[in-house]
Design a protein around this nucleic acid. Structure first.
Length: 138
DNA sequence: GCCAACGTTGGC
DNA sequence: GCCAACGTTGGC
């Protein structure tokens, strides 16, 4: 069981759309490190859904429901995508400013490598963020 | 294989 | 809108 953080610009694909669609293919990743992270995801893994650019906050949680397969939006089968399903919104979205200000989260991949759109999250970071985001589902 | 030029992401 | 941090491309 691993934890992740996936980014989306809300103007491109938002949490609200994720909730409406329920299951969504996470396509469009064109970065090798992010692709490696996608490939390492397993069914049942959980990921934070982060709104980048205009909001810069974690807004909800998704579950990986289909492991890496060729991204239909890419030519040549070079890139992969996974399917994710909405598992619930953060009652209190956690902003990037909050994450930056929290010593317990200072080592997050999100901060260390801001351009990485699919990043790993440690179990400790996950538990801490769920706590301050008031997300108490299993 | 190196590196300058260019493009993209994402925070400010 | 600007800029820092990366990543990619292409000339040498």
């Amino acid at each position: 069981m691993q934890y992740w953080l996936i980014k989306s610009e809300p103007e491109t694909f938002s949490w609200q759309q994720q909730v409406t669609n329920k299951v969504e293919p996470w396509t469009g990743v064109r970065n090798y490190q992010a692709r490696n992270n996608l490939s390492a995801m397993r069914c049942g893994d959980l990921a934070f859904f982060y709104h980048s650019v205009s909001e810069k906050q974690i807004v909800g949680v998704v579950e990986i429901v289909r492991e890496a397969y060729p991204d239909p939006t890419a030519e040549g089968g070079k890139w992969v995508c996974v399917d994710v399903a909405a598992r619930g919104a953060f009652a209190a979205p956690v902003s990037l400013a909050t994450i930056k200000a929290d010593p317990a989260l200072s080592e997050m991949a999100l901060l260390r490598q801001s351009r990485l759109s699919v990043a790993p999250v440690t179990a400790a970071e996950w538990a801490h963020l769920c706590h301050i985001g008031h997300w108490d589902k299993p």
